[in-house]
Design a protein around this nucleic acid. Structure first.
Lengths: 222, 222
DNA sequence: TCAATTATAATAGTATTGCTATCGTTATGG
DNA sequence: CCATAACGATAGCAATACTATTATAATTGA
């Protein structure tokens, strides 16, 4: 994985002009990830981003319709990237159990190393996913956006891991439900540990999240 | 429960003037629940609410600092109300198992009957909780608001059910984590079933959510 | 019961947000 | 070296998210 510099493809519905195609576009992505991390999605505006990259807002609007679409783009990028990771981590492994274990680890552990090759800082992006990505699909436009395929990358990841579950227990009724519960749950528990510790049982740094969800999955599949 | 007309207490940090104390205040609550359901939290403004109740926005600002605080108020109300439900549903029941089963049912099933006594429509409020309440704590002010006790009611519910888990399995390490996973998971699965069905395994109307999370909990506690 | 407080309505105003439009200049690539 | 796309600079506009002021109505408490 590390140095392959894989091209991540994002659904063209999510941009007006492909940010990957120009210097300015890549600058927009790099800096929006940083800025969103610093001030949060609500306070983030194209004006502030424009100031940061010394370009007028109107130039940013040429790439993305609005900040919501930009968030959709970032989440879509993240899930496409995660799917690559899943494929790599599970290739050439025969044991279904082992594949599932590794997948859960990828899905529940925050990214800690930025490969620094692309203009995307994966560590920061991961933090955005954990604390902002819910806002990408809890809106009144979900259905419309879903139809356009805006969530395809996420669904593809869920599907892939669901298939592993069925390899282990073919008659299990709720593979998608279980995996989306694990993914979203792990993200939330990380957030809770940092901000609402009464809702979890984690000391701030400990990464027993992966352990918890792994146990949860396998105890249910027994 | 039904006809007791219990007074729900909400943390005074969450309002400037108690909406429960005046006709206008109650009108604000009733109508904000309806309006937020209709147009969603993002599109909801005090101006629109003011038009609906035929009062100027400035009057609404006397009760709530902004729409975010109003959302916090509504979620807090919901959790306080849910805690009453939990207490009633589990009183006079000796079996810890049975108490937990009933609690999970309350936490994972959407409210379907409005008791129609108070000015709060619990069915609609429940829908807001399911699709908007995440936005109440995924903000850059969480820590500050948490300190002021804005999430006390939610935490109290989680604590109460965690205690039941420990009654069943005293050495279980992650009771809070498990319960918050169940609560948030159930809400999300309901939302997914309606809008992103690829992330779940539910036919739109079926309420196997409760069944799934009950199994999940008890298989982990075995 | 009347003065004093409080609640609300009506209105105005301001800074910021979330865009759209225009136009001149710079790249760039065929 | 010309055509066209990309970008910067600037303007402007409607909506949002408030704050402030004043007048009137309601309440209440001495």
């Amino acid at each position: 994985m590390k140095n392959l510099n894989i091209q991540i493809e994002v659904n063209p519905e999510l941009y007006s002009k492909n940010p990957d195609s120009s210097e300015l576009g890549r600058k927009i992505i790099t800096n929006s990830i940083e800025l969103m991390n610093e001030i949060g999605f609500e306070s983030f505006t194209f004006k502030k981003l424009g100031l940061r990259i010394k370009s007028p807002e109107s130039s940013i609007y040429r790439y993305f319709d609005n900040k919501h679409t930009l968030l959709l783009y970032l989440t879509s990028w993240y899930w496409a990237w995660t799917e690559y990771q899943l494929v790599f981590a599970t290739s050439n492994i025969s044991s279904s159990q082992e594949k599932l274990i590794r997948s859960i680890e990828i899905l529940t552990k925050p990214v800690l190393i930025d490969n620094s090759i692309s203009y995307v800082n994966e560590v920061l992006l991961c933090q955005i996913i954990f604390s902002e990505s819910l806002k990408a699909y809890y809106t009144k436009n979900v259905d419309e956006e879903n139809k356009k395929g805006c969530f395809k990358a996420y669904k593809s990841v869920v599907q892939r891991v669901s298939d592993m579950i069925l390899e282990i227990k073919a008659d299990f009724k709720y593979p998608h439900m279980l995996i989306s519960t694990v993914i979203e749950g792990a993200h939330q528990q990380k957030y809770f540990a940092e901000h609402l510790p009464a809702l979890t049982d984690l000391s701030k740094t400990k990464d027993s999240i992966t352990q918890f969800y792994t146990e949860l999955v396998f105890s249910l599949l027994k």
